[in-house]
Amino acid sequence: MSSSDIFIGETIGTAILILLGAGVCAAVTLKASKARNAGWLAISFGWGFAVLTAVYISGPLSGAHLNPAVTLAIAIKDNDFGDLPVYWGGQLLGAMIGAALTWIAYYGQFHAHLTDREIVGGPGAQDTRAKAVEAQENQAGPVLGVFSTGPEVRNPLMNVATEVIGTFVLCLAVLTQGLNADGKGLGTLGALITALVVVSIGLSLGGPTGYAINPARDLGPRIVHALLPLPNKGGSDWGYAWVPVVGPLIGGAIAAGVYNVAFA
């Protein structure tokens, strides 16, 4: 596959992944959404189906990595890092596009949510929140969870460990069961297996951090959250942003090492 196919496939696939994944988070979170308060089960299955849809769409072009940690794991397995920057670039761009499309799809709900006095406070809430963000960089705004993950208990070491473990499970599943004939991406059966693994990770390991298990999935939408003209949106929690990048990359690398020792 050519570099252009890889870049286009990863951009489109990751955009679909984030549109549907962040979309279910928006549906469950935002005021005036028909699915509000649907709960963690809806989020876990929503992300699993998002993976399934995105893989089937982008697989023929790029192999549907859709995740820098998966790309790193496959590169380590094959000892071939030549296409890594192309994959990562497409994944980050696609994640940003998907986050922006989620904002467009839920524009009315974002406005209703972020102008509700019960959520953001009374008159002057925008000025008050702006001062709070200026004083505390790490503040997470009221809709950041639609875009990016955050810990329930903030402990960087433990939060990284959770992301490492979850991503290790994902990447080992991809490497052992899901690769297509050329070993460069997910096959048809692998797409279904991976989607179910994502649901399982969400239900079993998602509680502590929200299970980013994908650096692009977290970083791209966090950048979009910081840039979008959302009223009273609060901070983007940049103090935590390194955790869902570093943790998954470590998890992917460990999975590749285990695969090479135990399965290759």
Rank of each mutant, 00 (worst) to 15 (best):
residue 199 V to S: 08
residue 160 V to Q: 13
residue 106 Y to G: 03
residue 106 Y to D: 05
residue 161 A to E: 06
residue 151 P to G: 05
residue 147 F to K: 00
residue 104 I to Q: 10
residue 97 I to H: 03
residue 149 T to P: 11
residue 179 L to C: 04
residue 82 G to C: 00
residue 141 G to Q: 04
residue 163 E to F: 04
residue 153 V to I: 14
residue 112 A to C: 12
residue 66 L to M: 04
residue 93 L to R: 00
residue 87 Y to W: 10
residue 182 D to Q: 01
residue 153 V to A: 11
residue 62 S to N: 01
residue 183 G to V: 09
residue 180 N to Y: 02
residue 95 A to C: 02
residue 61 L to M: 15
residue 161 A to R: 03
residue 120 V to E: 06
residue 73 A to H: 02
residue 162 T to F: 15
residue 203 L to D: 08
residue 107 Y to P: 04
residue 103 W to K: 11
residue 203 L to K: 11
residue 183 G to C: 07
residue 104 I to T: 12
residue 75 A to H: 04
residue 201 I to P: 10
residue 123 P to T: 08
residue 79 N to C: 05
residue 76 I to G: 02
residue 150 G to E: 05
residue 74 I to G: 00
residue 74 I to D: 01
residue 171 C to F: 14
residue 132 A to N: 12
residue 88 W to F: 13
residue 141 G to C: 07
residue 137 E to L: 12
residue 145 G to T: 03
residue 107 Y to S: 09
residue 156 P to I: 06
residue 132 A to Y: 07
residue 166 G to I: 01
residue 78 D to G: 03
residue 150 G to R: 15
residue 64 A to S: 10
residue 159 N to L: 10
residue 125 A to V: 09
residue 92 L to Q: 06
residue 127 D to L: 10
residue 101 L to P: 13
residue 205 L to Y: 13
residue 163 E to L: 08
residue 109 Q to V: 05
residue 177 Q to V: 06
residue 174 V to P: 05
residue 125 A to C: 07
residue 167 T to R: 03
residue 134 E to L: 11
residue 65 H to D: 04
residue 184 K to T: 04
residue 177 Q to Y: 14
residue 204 S to D: 08
residue 97 I to V: 15
residue 94 G to R: 04
residue 85 P to D: 01
residue 62 S to A: 11
residue 171 C to L: 09
residue 64 A to E: 06
residue 103 W to V: 06
residue 175 L to S: 03
residue 187 G to R: 12
residue 90 G to I: 06
residue 127 D to G: 10
residue 82 G to A: 04
residue 181 A to F: 12
residue 71 T to Y: 06
residue 168 F to C: 05
residue 76 I to C: 09
residue 136 Q to H: 15
residue 166 G to W: 00
residue 205 L to A: 09
residue 102 T to M: 10
residue 93 L to H: 02
residue 194 T to G: 12
residue 80 D to W: 00
residue 99 A to S: 04
residue 129 R to F: 11
residue 94 G to Q: 08
residue 105 A to S: 12
residue 157 L to W: 12
residue 76 I to Y: 03
residue 127 D to H: 15
residue 171 C to V: 08
residue 75 A to Y: 04
residue 205 L to Q: 09
residue 100 A to W: 15
residue 101 L to I: 05
residue 162 T to K: 08
residue 92 L to S: 00
residue 131 K to G: 14
residue 200 S to L: 13
residue 78 D to N: 15
residue 62 S to V: 04
residue 69 A to L: 09
residue 82 G to F: 01
residue 193 I to G: 07
residue 166 G to F: 02
residue 76 I to Q: 02
residue 111 H to F: 14
residue 113 H to C: 11
residue 118 E to S: 11
residue 71 T to D: 11
residue 104 I to P: 07
residue 96 M to C: 12
residue 169 V to G: 00
residue 186 L to Y: 01
residue 119 I to C: 13
residue 110 F to S: 03
residue 84 L to I: 00
residue 60 P to I: 03
residue 169 V to Y: 07
residue 104 I to C: 11
residue 109 Q to H: 15
residue 172 L to Y: 08
residue 68 P to W: 07
residue 144 L to G: 02
residue 138 N to M: 09
residue 68 P to E: 06
residue 157 L to E: 06
residue 171 C to A: 09
residue 122 G to A: 14
residue 194 T to A: 05
residue 155 N to C: 08
residue 101 L to E: 02
